[in-house]
Simulated assay, not measured.
Amino acid sequence: MSDEVESMMYVGETPWHGLGVSCESAPTVEEAIKKSGLDWEVEARHLITHTGEKARHRGIYRTSDGAKLGEVGPKYKPLQNREAFEAFQPFLDTGKAVLETAGSLRGGSLIWVLARLLGDPLTIVPKADDIVRKFILLAHGHQQGRSVKWGFVPIRVVCANTLGAALSAEASRLLRIPHKGDVVGALKRMPEIMNLADQTFEVSAEQYRFLASKGVREKDLLKYVRAAFAGGDPDDGSDEGGGLGGEGGAAPGGDAPPGAPPAPLIPSAEAKRYWLGEQIRRLFETGRGNDRPGVRGTWWALVNGANEYLGYEMGKNQERRLDSFWFARGARINQRLVRIALRFAKNAPSASN
């Protein structure tokens, strides 16, 4: 295992990062806990200052090996791995979902469990067999400032891209449960909230279908990249905020992806923007599933090309992207990619393929 992925399990095909223990069929909670290497507990211990006094903050330690996983405030309530898995039990008992993958990052300090919802997937482009499946994600960390994140995640099957959900829909966002009070009790109430959130998936699917119905004009491609990655608003050229800032231009000066043009030796802001635009263009044209009839040349292909760059090529290694997309700003970034694409697509011509 790498420095980032400590342990994990998965069902079916080997994940894109090539890590983890394979399960031939969907595991039970007990099987998943063991296969994912998460059959351990944590406890909070008082920290001692250099003067020998008890510190206000506490350390979270793994009881199996004494490893320190993080430091937290006095009101922090640990969520045990078993409790995280048991939050999925109502969905498993009713046959609505199966466990798909689970594991830990950064020495056990970050935990995730992902379950796939059964039933009909969302068909975006029928003739391309381009579908999106619905998953339930729980992710949290044994560190200060890490809340429990719980909610629906749409994933495009052809490329395993994690997508942005319904535009401006509160119910579509990952819910945050602070590590305070009755965390387990809050998780037990989640199925009721999730039933409401499920309705937003059809709204999301309609947005994806709309993007697939609109063609991308050459003049709009670089404008989209600037708006989505640098924070500029496509309507007035101002800084909308919430962009990726330096992340979008992080690749220049590093190793370029296979088949990519060389990065500029002196990465000025304009040079980085152009270099990034060429990466997104390449994936827009040749990315996973983007050359299929009904997808090729559309805003749906461009969103997925940008998403593929973020999920597969940006950053120093693949394991860090798990952290980025499931624990950090992934959901917000994906929503931004869809939101800005919808804004451009309103005035775009109909797709020709």
Rank of each mutant, 00 (worst) to 15 (best):
Q80F: 00
R62F: 03
E30H: 04
I60A: 05
L69R: 01
E31P: 10
V29R: 13
Y76F: 15
T28V: 12
Q80Y: 02
T63K: 09
G52Q: 03
S25G: 11
W40L: 06
C23G: 09
K34Y: 05
L38S: 05
L79Y: 01
L19R: 10
T63H: 05
V42S: 08
Q80T: 00
S36N: 12
L19P: 02
K75Y: 13
K34H: 06
E43K: 05
W16V: 06
G37W: 08
G70L: 02
A44E: 15
H46K: 11
Y76Q: 01
E53N: 05
T49P: 07
A67W: 01
E41Q: 13
E43W: 01
T14P: 05
R45K: 07
K54E: 14
E43D: 11
I60S: 04
S22L: 04
P15K: 09
I33T: 13
S36H: 12
I33F: 13
T51W: 10
R58Y: 03
S22F: 01
T51R: 15
V42D: 02
E71T: 10
T51K: 07
P74H: 03
A67N: 01
G37F: 07
A67K: 11
K77F: 00
T28H: 14
A26M: 13
R45D: 01
T51N: 11
H50R: 12
Y61Q: 00
E43A: 11
D39E: 15
H50A: 15
S25Y: 08
K75I: 08
H57Y: 11
R45Q: 07
V72N: 04
V21K: 08
E31H: 12
T14M: 13
E30S: 13
T49I: 09
E71G: 06
H57P: 01
A26I: 14
S22Q: 14
C23K: 07
G18K: 15
E41S: 10
G52Y: 05
G73R: 00
L38Q: 10
C23D: 05
L47G: 04
K75Q: 13
K54H: 13
G12N: 06
E53K: 07
G59E: 08
K75S: 13
D39F: 07
D65Q: 06
G73D: 05
E71Y: 06
K77L: 00
L19I: 10
P15Q: 07
V72E: 02
S22E: 08
H50G: 03
E43P: 03
K68Q: 01
A44Y: 02
E24F: 09
K75E: 15
H50K: 11
G52A: 08
L69W: 00
G52K: 05
T63S: 13
A26W: 15
T63W: 09
S64H: 12
P74Q: 02
G20N: 11
K54S: 12
W40T: 08
I48N: 07
K34D: 06
T49N: 12
Y61W: 06
E71N: 07
E43T: 10
G37T: 04
T14H: 05
T51E: 14
E24R: 09
G59R: 04
L19H: 13
V42M: 07
A32C: 06
E41Y: 03
L19K: 11
R56L: 14
G59Q: 05
K54G: 03
K75G: 11
P78A: 00
E53C: 01
Y61S: 00
L38R: 04
L69K: 01
R62A: 12
V42L: 05
A44I: 07
E41M: 10
H17G: 05
D39S: 15
P15V: 14
